[in-house]
Amino acid sequence: MTLLTFRFAPSPNGDLHLGHAYSTLLNQKLANASDGRLLLRIEDIDTTRCTPQFEAGVLADLKWLGLGWEEPVRRQSEHFAEYKAVLDRLIREELVYPAFMSRGEIRAFITDCEKRGRDWPRDPDGVPLYPPTDKALPMRERKRRIDDNQPFAWRLDVGAALAHVGKGLAWAEFTDETLSATRPVEARPRDWGDVIVARRDIPTSYHLAVVMDDALQGVSHIVRGQDLFSATGVQRLLQELLGLPQPAYFHHRLILGPDGRKLSKSLGDSGLAALRGAGASPDDIRRIVGL
């Protein structure tokens, strides 16, 4: 019998907050209820913002909450060679292309289009989709710009990728925290346009690294926040392109601040370290988040 495998995958770029506490405790609860496994993964591909000090704080907070996990902990920054091998495959199969436009050039392109009466499409987060200009560049021009050391990112050609897959995509979404029933959800990767899958200096992105890691670690059940629900469509597409197994998903409710806004590490919302320092106990945290 295959063990159910869950994971909690924080980025060490700030202090954990109540939303992270809910997610990690829910993963632990579900793993325990199914006699399954709980893995910890450190998602630190952003080597500028992610620091050893933040990682130490993350581990301290999780241990204080009573979380246990299997060793060794997987750190994404230690596996860039693995991600690059997969990126190279996508490049060979012409499923990605180098995108050179700066943020200012993107804004100017979109502003010009909107001045001419065209509403520019936006992704589910409200960010304008990347213009098609670079996708049309001849191969010789792409090579010249790369050789000239121009900054660029590798973007997934979503249209080519969907044609390569040749079928509609869906995923199994659990309907509540008991994981007792699923419903099929249509994957809509086109909603995100041509997403970044790697940068020139970092051979991966969140989307590419997470699908590879989940497959390599044998993760069967991905339990994470509702804010990542729509992004699952992009990850399902990458799973199909790369021949990776398809996990089941549950996108849980978000813990919101008093103003109804999603909690944020960058704003220091409800940091666990601060709550601990103010005298809160792990049981207090469980009560606050509804567990």
Rank of each mutant, 00 (worst) to 15 (best):
F229S: 09
V73C: 09
V223N: 01
P282G: 05
D112L: 13
A56D: 15
L39H: 04
D214V: 00
L244W: 04
I255E: 10
A81L: 13
I91E: 07
A231W: 08
K262F: 02
Y249R: 04
L179G: 10
A274C: 06
G168E: 15
G14H: 03
L208H: 09
P131V: 05
I146S: 11
D134A: 10
R103D: 15
G268S: 14
R286H: 05
S34H: 03
H207S: 03
L87H: 05
G279I: 06
W154T: 12
R253K: 10
E186H: 08
D283P: 00
F100Q: 12
A60T: 13
R276T: 07
A60V: 03
R261A: 11
D123G: 06
F152A: 11
P124F: 06
G168C: 03
K143R: 08
G36C: 01
A172P: 03
R188G: 04
S220Q: 07
L38S: 01
D194V: 02
L241R: 12
D134N: 15
K63A: 13
H79Q: 11
D269L: 02
Q217H: 04
I288H: 12
A170F: 09
Q226D: 14
L237M: 12
G218V: 00
D148N: 10
C50E: 15
R200C: 03
D213S: 05
P132R: 12
V127C: 10
P203V: 04
R236E: 15
Y130I: 03
Y97W: 09
L242H: 14
R286A: 03
E93F: 07
W64R: 01
R261H: 13
G117Y: 13
L4N: 15
